[in-house]
């Protein structure tokens, strides 16, 4: 039996995203599998709830914090590019079972990340991926016509800049290190982090300018 009594009755509180009027077969499957695993002592409701909460707590702010540190601390940036996993751990962010490779944007190279086969994403740094990252058009096209895809995001990369697309795997995730915008010399680390969007860490956009 579910421990979760936090939601109101569906008839009292009509369908929100978590409160569909009818459960689909797959929602039933999730509930049934979850309850069987708990009944068998393999998982606990508390552990499942904690895992959901831990994932909810992961947001692009973590990725932004890593990049802002790299922008203000050249030694940290060098370590981040050398070993992304270890550099994130310095800031208390675990990559879990995955390895992180950070790819740096320069005046010559603009980087973009994708997972053509599935949906691998630096979720420990950015949270769960947006729907479009997992969509067929993005996965299929960005490796072949990245400039056209970036154009759809409103991002134009000059012809003399190489666009490099990195295809993630289950074990190896990429994060883009965007270029620090001009005119930000006076900003502190927190103000810099506020310029760093999720999409700029995927590489489909550039950071905000102050």
């Amino acid at each position: 039996m579910s421990e979760d009594h936090s939601h109101s009755h569906p008839h009292a509180d009509p369908a929100g995203p978590d409160e569909p009027a009818m459960l689909t077969d797959y929602q039933l499957m999730e509930g049934a599998v979850r309850e069987l695993l708990v009944e068998k002592g393999i998982l606990t409701h508390a552990a499942i709830r904690e895992a959901v909460e831990a994932m909810d707590a992961r947001t692009p702010a973590q990725g932004a914090r890593v990049v802002a540190r790299a922008w203000v601390d050249p030694a940290y940036k060098a370590r981040l590019l050398e070993n992304g996993t270890a550099a994130c751990e310095e800031l208390g962010i675990s990559m879990g079972p995955t390895h992180l490779v950070v790819v740096e944007n320069t005046p010559e190279v603009h980087n973009v990340i994708v997972c053509t086969l599935c949906s691998c994403y630096p979720r420990m740094l950015l949270g769960l991926p947006p729907d479009w990252y997992k969509s067929k058009p993005y996965r299929s096209r960005v490796v072949r016509e990245p400039r056209a895809v970036l154009h759809e995001f409103g991002t134009e990369i000059a012809d003399n800049v190489t666009v490099r697309v990195h295809d993630s795997t289950a074990d190896m995730r990429y994060l883009v290190l965007p270029r620090r915008p001009a005119g930000t010399d006076v900003l502190d680390e927190a103000a810099l982090a506020a310029l760093i969007t999720r999409d700029s860490l995927i590489g489909v956009a550039l950071p905000r300018t102050p």
């Binding site: 995203p17 499942i48 959901v52 479009w132 058009p137 490796v143 995001f153």
Partner: peptide, 22 residues
């Protein structure tokens, strides 16, 4: 599907439902 042709990237996003997070 990497490298295949495809339509425009639809930029819509949805907040994950509780059952999806579970």
């Amino acid at each position: 599907i990497g490298g295949l042709a495809g339509g425009a990237v639809e930029r819509g996003e949805h907040d994950y439902a509780l059952w999806e997070k579970r």
